[in-house]
Design a protein around this nucleic acid. Structure first.
Lengths: 170, 170
DNA sequence: AGTATATGTCAGTGTTGTTGACATTCCAAG
DNA sequence: CTTGGAATGTCAACAACACTGACATATACT
């Protein structure tokens, strides 16, 4: 470890990609790339009175219309108080509609209004444009690797939420 | 676009990996993976009086010892007021040392103390452990693709900062 | 001497997250 | 039918971290 390599020259396989130096580069790549990942939506949101939390809520409500507050809570991984503040403003501003559940009237099912869908489109178009450019530049094999590593980096709960969403694809 | 595909069956090449559905999955993968990426350091930091901003500062000071405040500002992409608040507590707590520059006495060069290095190790060991596991599970080809896509996702300034750090590797 | 740069600091504000406490509504088990 | 618990919403307080704007200081460059 003092030489900056935790694993190398083992079992005939080349494990140089697991050196501390390679891991550090991966960590810094994640840090810088995430900034790029959020930069475009952040720019749009700063003009409005919204932030990243509003973007996330709108994204996942659009992704799974009619989802309950509790479900959204699990996906976003925040407290209900934090989510509630965001949802309240979105509902007040007419971007999100909250409908009382039919089978269980305690539950509130969340939907985007037309105005909410318009904002979601605006935000996700910007984010997709950057992702599309990155994917195109990198090519399909790199994209497959990208996805594989990201999935391996998730916590169990997150991976479950992710795959559940992924496999319910349109 | 109404069918969820912006590009497909073009120029003899298979561009199915650029559909809106694939891009959406990439976006959600980034979101969930970044949570996993920061989860372990966040747990450690929550016990101390520090947050993610302190982690970032300590990381990059360790990465480039003697760096100036201005340089760190560019790397982190925050305001000097925000960084100064973090640096002040780290210096007060004896984790970071600030030395007046020799050639330019306006500049302050930043170094980690032994205590600061200990915290950096603790944090980066946790983060590297997860990254190592993800890399090992995914394999070298996937890791290469992961890096390629992340680099393509960065803004120009960030990519410059990233490659400059990367190419100054130990 | 005058301008520009690097840094630090103070005051105010906004978004997002946290805990803790409490009310309401409603399903379900006893 | 009553009671316990689950789902949701609300209020209050607080902390972390970002922002803007203004200003001070020391130093460097021209």
């Amino acid at each position: 470890m003092a030489d900056g390599r935790t694993a190398s020259a083992q079992s005939g396989e080349n494990l140089l990609f697991l050196t501390d130096e390679q891991l550090r580069q991966g960590i810094e790549a994640m840090f810088f790339a995430y900034r790029g990942f959020t930069a475009d939506p952040d720019r749009i949101l700063s003009d409005l009175a919204y932030g990243r939390a509003h973007h996330r809520a709108v994204h996942f409500i659009n992704r799974a219309p009619g989802t309950t507050v509790n479900n959204l809570l699990n996906i976003l991984g925040v407290t209900k108080q934090s989510l509630n503040r965001v949802l309240r403003t979105l509902i007040e501003d007419g971007l999100v509609e909250s409908k009382v559940g039919k089978v269980d009237k305690r539950e509130r099912h969340l939907f985007l209004t037309e105005e909410g869908q318009a904002l979601e489109q605006k935000l996700s178009n910007a984010q997709r444009a950057r992702m599309r450019m990155a994917f195109r530049d990198a090519g399909p094999e790199a994209v497959a690797g990208f996805r594989t590593v990201l999935e391996a980096m998730m916590d169990g709960d997150m991976r479950f939420a992710y795959t559940r969403l992924r496999d319910s694809g349109t």
